[in-house]
């Protein structure tokens, strides 16, 4: 198994609710994989297990060959997994630049080096001109970009993106897609994204995993998945397929 991220039969139960039910997923290095499904399908719970917020009840998660399930979030990030939050969590009183500096300092001891990295990332995400603003003053699309910038600044090998396109206008979505594609191609960054915006999913993902009621109901190339009867039935609805 040479996958960078190997999820094997993970489940998570909250009280009576089985949020994730024996889901497996292998993400090769350099791949872009999307996780889709209706609200409450368990996508974010799956993410939270990868990122260390929850430990899975059963199953294992390996990153670069090492078991990471059950590790705390900071250790998982230090191993090379960056994440964004679906409900954005900027550091509101800090400037945009300082927000990204925090991430950049993870693998850099000195502030000046981290600043260079922060500026680089801010340029990618079109936030460079807003770097002196407090994060609290940003619009939602900019906050989404800041989430991505901050996670990228930690130099991840794997980036987990939780609905970063939500709330973006179509042109902004295209821009974000282009940035992510560029990062993926230039540096081999592996990306797993939860996304409702099918325009972005179809443009980015080489593979799609569909969750429904916590279980994986389909997995494959985008064209196959959107034609899968169970997927159409449970999630996409007939008009979206065309």
């Amino acid at each position: 198994m040479s996958a960078l991220l190997a999820i094997d039969g993970v489940s998570k139960r909250f009280r009576g609710l089985l949020a994730v039910d024996r889901v497996s997923l292998a993400v090769p290095e350099g791949a872009i994989v999307a996780v889709i499904g209706p609200n409450g399908a368990g996508k974010t719970t799956l993410f939270n297990m990868i990122a260390g917020v929850h430990a899975p009840d059963t199953g294992t998660i390996r990153f670069a060959g090492r078991r990471i399930d059950g590790l705390p979030p900071d250790q998982i990030c230090r191993q090379g997994i960056g994440r964004t939050f679906q409900i954005v969590r900027p550091f509101p009183a800090l400037t945009v630049e300082d927000n990204v500096m925090v991430g950049a300092l993870l693998h850099r001891r000195q502030a000046p080096q981290a600043r260079l990295r922060a500026h680089e990332v801010l340029r990618w995400l079109d936030l460079y001109d807003k770097r002196a603003q407090r994060a609290a003053t940003l619009t939602l699309p900019d906050r989404k970009r800041l989430e991505v910038a901050r996670a990228l600044a930690t130099d991840p090998r794997l980036l987990l993106l939780d609905e970063v396109m939500a709330g973006l206008r179509p042109t902004e979505t295209d821009r974000m897609v282009a940035v992510l594609k560029q990062l993926n191609q230039a540096s081999g960054l592996t990306i797993v994204l939860i996304e409702h915006v099918m325009r972005a999913v179809m443009a980015l993902a080489a593979r799609i995993l569909v969750l429904h009621h916590g279980a994986a109901i389909a997995e494959g190339a985008p064209e196959e998945v959107v034609r899968h009867p169970a997927v159409i039935h449970s999630y996409l609805g007939a008009e979206d397929v065309a």
Partner: peptide
């Protein structure tokens, strides 16, 4: 929580 997600112990 966001700090931890950025790898801060």
């Amino acid at each position: 929580e966001a700090a931890r997600a950025l790898g801060i112990d």
